[in-house]
């Protein structure tokens, strides 16, 4: 499965008023290219920090459903966060891991070891983990994403995706702090208007 296909499937399952947080790298770019309507924070560096950022955000916004779009390289950098999320057990947090086994944007280097992130999550106390096989078709993956979405969080799908060229993106015009301000203003406007983006 291509990462763009997985992003499109996720976009098709989420409600418009779900809030998305993305790790840096190719998973986040696939989500951006899916042009989903969801309020999204593209978390950038430091690498390995997107899951804890999403956890803090979810704990502070218990009335919102929060979905983390995560790369396997980002998660591999900080596996301990799986234990922190399992311990905190936020019912409103879900995670979709785009697993290509490589640091795609960094040059395609393979990850260390032979990681089974679904097994790692279960070992850390996650009870709702979907891990469709690499050759699962779109319908099967969509079913797994839907099950994750309907389950109480924390819930996760780890989906293998193909290795694809992921050239380093051009430098953007806006700083991370600029993007943060836009995100927070949209969040505030949404709160003022009763909860929808």
């Amino acid at each position: 499965m291509r990462r763009s296909t997985l992003a499109r499937i996720v976009a098709g399952v989420l409600a418009e008023d779900d809030i998305v947080i993305c790790s840096l790298g190719s998973a986040g770019r696939a989500w951006r290219e899916a042009s989903a309507p969801n309020l999204t924070y593209f978390a950038s560096d430091p690498m390995g920090m997107a899951p804890s950022l999403a956890l803090g955000f979810a704990l502070s916004r218990p009335g919102d459903r929060v979905v983390l779009i995560e790369g396997d390289g980002d998660l591999a950098m900080n596996l301990g966060v799986l234990a922190a999320i399992a311990g905190a057990a936020p019912p409103n947090l879900r995670m979709v891991v785009f697993a290509n086994g490589r640091y795609e944007t960094g040059g395609g280097q393979s990850l260390a070891g032979r990681l089974d992130l679904g097994a790692a999550a279960r070992a850390c106390g996650w009870e709702r983990v979907e891990s469709p096989p690499a050759d699962a078709d779109e319908a099967a993956v969509a079913t797994a994403i839907r099950r994750m979405y309907d389950a109480e969080g924390p819930a996760m799908v780890v989906q293998p995706v193909e290795s694809e060229a992921s050239p380093y993106p051009k430098a953007g015009r806006w700083s991370q702090a600029d993007d943060k301000a836009v995100f927070q203003r949209r969040l505030a406007a949404r709160d003022e208007s009763g909860g929808r983006t």
């Binding site: 997107a50 804890s52 950022l53 956890l55 916004r61 995100f183």
Partner: peptide, 20 residues
């Protein structure tokens, strides 16, 4: 929230700030 590394603790606090 109990964490396994301090950078995760910082990330959680940053996520709280992102939420306002």
């Amino acid at each position: 929230v109990k964490v396994t590394r301090e950078d995760d603790a910082l990330g959680i606090a940053a996520g709280t700030a992102l939420a306002g």
